[in-house]
Design a protein around this nucleic acid. Sequence first.
DNA 1: ACGCCGCGTGTTAGCGATAACTTCCAGGCC
DNA 2: GGCCTGGAAGTTATCGCTAACACGCGGCGT
Lengths: 357, 357
Amino acid sequence: MLSSPLWTATAILPARTYYDPRMVTIADVARAAGVSPSTVSYVLSGKRSISETTRRRVHHSIRKLGYRPNAGARALASSRTNVLALVVPMRTDLNVPVVMQFVTATVAEARSYDHDVLLLTADEGPEGLHRVAASALADAIIVMDVEAAEPRVPVLRSLGRPVVLIGVPDDTRDLACVDLDFTAAGSDCVSHLADLGHRDIALIGPSPAVYERGTSYAGRFLRGFEQTAADRGVEAETMACVPTYDGLRDVLDHLLSRRRPVTGLVVHNEAILGPLLSELAKRGKRVPQDISVLAVCPPDLAEAQSVPLSSVDIPATELGRLAVELAMHQLGGLAELDVKLLPPRLTARGSTGPVVA
Amino acid sequence: MLSSPLWTATAILPARTYYDPRMVTIADVARAAGVSPSTVSYVLSGKRSISETTRRRVHHSIRKLGYRPNAGARALASSRTNVLALVVPMRTDLNVPVVMQFVTATVAEARSYDHDVLLLTADEGPEGLHRVAASALADAIIVMDVEAAEPRVPVLRSLGRPVVLIGVPDDTRDLACVDLDFTAAGSDCVSHLADLGHRDIALIGPSPAVYERGTSYAGRFLRGFEQTAADRGVEAETMACVPTYDGLRDVLDHLLSRRRPVTGLVVHNEAILGPLLSELAKRGKRVPQDISVLAVCPPDLAEAQSVPLSSVDIPATELGRLAVELAMHQLGGLAELDVKLLPPRLTARGSTGPVVA
DNA sequence: ACGCCGCGTGTTAGCGATAACTTCCAGGCC
DNA sequence: GGCCTGGAAGTTATCGCTAACACGCGGCGT
């Protein structure tokens, strides 16, 4: 009784069939709609004209059967996967929310082109890029956190697939790049403070490690900052800052004890914004009356501080959008292989004010 | 002269061939090695024994030609994509670094099983799950940020594919779930403070929105917290806290002005840790002499504060690892469809101390 | 009236793997 | 010597879809 035939039949099903959902195929749909498979395919792709009545019947059968094209079969036949590979950095010294914002923007934008996103981490290195390209896992590749002397550039160029870089390496030949115009951003920060009458300012930059590995945006921001400071006759000092309380205290000790203390700070280091404000408060420095603070960070971070910060946006969402768009254009055959820099937008929020004599 | 034949020939190449890398196929390898395609396949999959000499010749040809199996073809023939889908939340009210840590851990672990990760965002909803499952884009699905009354559960159950949830919904039948044991964590926090002599403590929880939408971890933590407080005879108050300065100030105003002010705080809200410490400092409360602070957050966050915080880990990396492992087991046919809760680990770092009478 | 055009569809040859079925051969056993 | 066994490798059907090619038919120009 315990081992009835029915029970046995169920139990001896091989494990692998547990997860083998019987799928509806294009042939099923064609049969149901009384047309040929290719007609169904063409209805879906729109690559040739189909009469209104046929189109309707096909769509009806598709819905009724719940048909979804098999991605593998489609990729095999069309050599298009409808997948974008996105390589995210593994660094702990960059701002994680910004990365995440970029990632989600990329996924959302990819979906709007009917594509999905395959996530790779930078620690797979060039080998990972080869793997994804050569095994036809993705149609195009987007790479974040590009360094000036980016070691992956030669590989990327040889992949035979569209590539979009977020960031600007030294050698951009045949490569599509997008980024914020950090040079202009650095320049705008100085101008903003100079316009308010500041003559002694400082840049608190990212951790020394960031500069040392030649991350391109840090250097470009610095260049814009220093150049414009020189042009405007503003005394400007730059200090890299490790993102810890001790690092920050050292920096402030120095900047505030100078013969002519700084009256304006430009902070290109998201991680220390919160600590910086508490530390300034602790030292009795009011923002902006005693010292102006101008940040480079996403708007929500700027707004979430004890004093809403004037800031230059990091347009992560916009960059994600743009990166996908460029990849799609390349896939469409329109090669715009150049560097696209988004103009910075500076929003004054009250943490910057005129110098009080 | 300007339009030499060569130049013309280059220019009229149709756009679509630009990115059509001629790929090495299994047949190429077989030919080069003097064996049949299936032999190459078997060498790669190890699904039947191959003599040492043939294996070597095949491997040699593979390397020489730089062969990589075409993912689409492989998926079609084997009905295995070697891809895991990962659904990440789109909420702004949860801790982004924790999510990111989880994501990268998942990718890394998936790679160690020779799988890739397809990234989906929760805002695609159940439709997105259907899409990925029915079009055979992924073999299994991992879903983060599960709510108690999780609306996606029925869909997930009907997908016909392995599913792993991060978090614990009310109805876990036939579903694999992993999470931190938040109930135990809440309990441990109370015990830690009670052991130090605290008799008046408070839980500063996540934003009210988190409780309202029934996020399962928040409720479980709260339950453990309150239960153990009752057991230990500790006076315990709970306050949800919107992650802004104003929200935090309101909470502190209340807690510190009580007839018997709290001597210990449990903070289950990463976003306000920094602000909380500055605010306490501003009010002249020393940590831990005047008030103990115990956080629930990743260790690096706990260490990066002005006072290194005693904390209960959020084991994001471990959870990612485990989620992938469970998915793989299901794919292997061993269904362990139950709830796996990781025991909490509390690390004392100096922000908690005995009550001073 | 003839042929040509172009629209709407059907037919079918791949795409590049996998794996079920064969085949071949060398030993061992009776 | 015939027969069975089992290891090693070849043959080929198949996976589901796309797109090149083929076809019939009605209208139109000459």
